[in-house]
Design a protein around this nucleic acid. Structure first.
Lengths: 190, 190, 190, 190
DNA sequence: TATGAATGAGAATTCATTCAT
DNA sequence: AATGAATGAATTCTCATTCAT
């Protein structure tokens, strides 16, 4: 009853915390209370199981980003919304985020490309979103004349770093959202 | 003919690009033009080889940080110096940095703790350095009254994110140093 | 609707072309458009399915041989009739013949003996038939004084070889019946 | 000391008697007094081991056929020589012959084509040899005007059948060489 | 008759590591 | 310092077979 889901959950947790290579199928099914052949009955193999999890995580993350409001009073609100969504996602799905952050782009044998694509697509999406946002703000004089591409990369780097801090057990699990947004607001202000 | 060094170099490159688990001793010695027993003659085992490399990287990085000038005209210069050293290190030793960023804290069987310590120590060092720096700047009115611990974490997250961007083949290998420093300078300015 | 028959047909074809060991129950049911539990519902197991097919093939072949006319004008006609029946059987049931030729005596775990018996019985039957035939011909001066047991074995070897050529895709699928009979007729003639 | 050879011998025997699929690597190394990793150290895999054996058998058989004298007093002597070589080979290397007869063309996953080639080449060689021989004999009136291609196939079928009888434990292991040659001599005579 | 889910036993293969030289 | 041969312990994955429905 629901052993497939148990396997997915066990695998997610183990992949996130030990890495793909260091996690054995035996360990997964033991954690899930299942047997190895069942894993291979439901999934084509260890990599397919990993890929299925990854696809699901990215699909859910992209869904969250789809829901971001397009219209806002101030362009910085859009940045706030983006950061908010990302941090919320980490809070909701810490294991999944950990898995993505430590495996993407991953070194798989068969599905490496699919995995890389997720990563590249997400990055492109963030670049697009932030780029538009910055240009609009600069045009509307709400932002100083910052160099757009560089600033986009800086913002992405910062978000990436913040997510990693949240996910790592180190550095206190405090939500730096507000402070970080203040930091950026000031850096971008006219 | 320095086969030990060949092994270290091959291992560094392979660990950095494929990960510790995905790299086999056979692959290392093939790349190095050596044989497996020789690897075990020079190193206690695969983990010991990894640890030796890691120790060396951290030792060199810490040395760089030791050399940072303690006295500067403006506290932001200290931040500039720090960021500069880190970015220089990546430029000099990209493989080594990649190895550290993707493996630390690593999941080793025997030396996990030693590895974790490197990571924790470095983080503590950065926190200390940046904390002092911020407090001094706030005291001297060169910086706005930012919340120190949060801002320290934000700066570390940003540096971490920037290093990762540099090391990843994605996102253009442009050095964002100057832009990032401008970004931070403005964010911290009074 | 007749899935049992579908399974038998699929199994026959696969066993014949890939061998018993190399054919999986999954492959059989996939080819037959059925599911594995159904195979086990209809047959005790993979070996039982194989044995059932084999029994059927031998039963049909033996039936054909039962029908051989006992009285003929010339003893060589009996050889002609035998060779004809065998070649007809291959033409009618090429897959089944292929299965028998490549698996008999087969290496089964449970029914090896039953399988071997089929083979031994058929051989004995052929030896008996050809032996009687040769002795009669020699007695009646229609055949030269050939050594009977050896010639029987030679004739069986030749028939065996011819059947195999027919069943293999190689060597042109031409029916060598007439030429082979001429060859033998001359070899046996006074 | 010579464990590689032990493995080859064990594998030859087991492949010949049980078939490729029914023989496990574990069984091979147990028989050889070795361990599984050693098998994989010396050979790329189970199939590679099989292929190596097969290559060797065919190489030795072809060498024997290379040595056949080209000039003979009577064309039938050439047939005698050929049959003799083949029967000698079976006597010398019964296991190897068994292996070839029951596996060639074999159903391998990787080297099926190489294996098939051996088989096809040998067949072509026999067809060529026997064809030339028959044509010469017919031309020189030593042989009757038999249809050459058919007779070639018949001779090959007979040889194949005889070899199989020798190799099978059934049918008495008597060497039918002389009887078979008499049989053919008469069939071909003018 | 029919099936989705599940499993015990075992397959080939790999890996880090060691031994003898 | 260097290697060819060897191995214990695992790993991923497959297979025939069964259970519950």
């Amino acid at each position: 009853m629901g052993k497939k889901i148990m396997i997915i959950q066990a695998a997610t947790q183990l992949f996130a915390n030990q890495g793909f290579d260091a996690t054995t199928t035996k360990e997964i099914v033991r954690t899930a209370g299942a047997t190895e052949p069942l894993l291979f009955y439901h999934f084509k193999g260890k990599e397919a199981l990993f890929t299925e999890i990854l696809d699901d995580v990215f699909s859910r993350l992209n869904q969250r980003l789809d829901e971001l409001p397009q219209r806002t009073d101030h362009p910085f609100e859009k940045i706030e919304n983006l950061v908010g969504r990302m941090m919320d996602f980490v809070a909701e799905s810490p294991e999944e985020t950990k898995l993505v952050l430590s495996h993407c782009p991953a070194r798989l044998k068969e599905n490496a490309e699919a995995c890389r694509r997720h990563y590249v697509d997400l990055r492109a999406r963030l670049e697009d979103y932030l780029g538009k946002c910055l240009r609009a703000g600069i045009r509307g004089k709400q932002f100083a004349k910052v160099p757009v591409p560089d600033t986009v990369n800086i913002l992405i780097a910062l978000i990436n770093g913040l997510l990693r801090q949240r996910v790592a057990e180190l550095a206190g699990n405090k939500d730096l959202r507000e402070s970080a947004l203040s930091f950026c607001r000031k850096a971008l202000s006219t």
